[in-house]
Design a protein around this nucleic acid. Sequence first.
DNA 1: GCGACAG
DNA 2: ATCTTGTCGC
Length: 265
Amino acid sequence: MAAPEAELVLKWEREQARLRESVKEEDTEDWQRSPDFSGLERVGGVDLSFIKGDDINACAHLVVLTYPHMKVLYEDCKMVTLNTPYVAGFLGFREAPPLLQALEKLKNVQPNLMPQVLFVDGNGLFHYREFGLACHLGVLSDLPCVGVAKNLLHVEGVVRSEEHQSQLNALQKSGDSFPLATASGRVLGKALRSSQSSIKPVYVSVGHRISLDTAVRLTHTCCLYRVPEPIRQTFQHTICDKRSGSNDYTTWELPTQEHQPKYPQ
DNA sequence: GCGACAG
DNA sequence: ATCTTGTCGC
């Protein structure tokens, strides 16, 4: 993929700065204040999936699950063609448009199934300019959004240093977390140990209309495995025939004991 | 200066 | 993002 033109990058930066002003980083919903999230009934997840040698054609996924039981209420997968290359820091311009279309479609066909919060595969405020994909989707859809990244983005001095590694080692049990603070002291996200069975954390940050602590708490309650169920279900429902062979989860042993799903049946 | 850098 | 097998353990 050719390097993005400097002019385009400048345009993108201006757009991110403009949209950044609309991000709400506080709880705006009643259920977010509730200790057990009572009132929350539907959680969504979005993601794009690709096949090996092709980075312009992708499958745009949207799933909606019940809360807290994580049962599938709605799933949609559509092949799309992307216009922009992947550039770290500008994921929103590449992935937000098709994902917004999926939300628009849901609004038209099953408005009653619109999720009350959306999990996004990528960062929110934990971003070079505090405007990752989760913020991008949040502002443009005005849906509460949580950013969950599986890998660490190097933001303002937050890197995989020995300090970071020792903080990770201190995450002993599921639900443990530590803040991701910039050199200036601003907390842009949290590293969360989301399941007992995985040492590797997920990086949670605010997308829109939710506080960081609520986002982390909610993410934890949606994790049966490392990746929050709404996002993980999106992988499972990939229609692009990627679920043959041993990757079919039905051939895997179900978690036992402390690995037990939080909400059986 | 070069490289690192969500998906 | 995606490629890619088995293997060891709870």
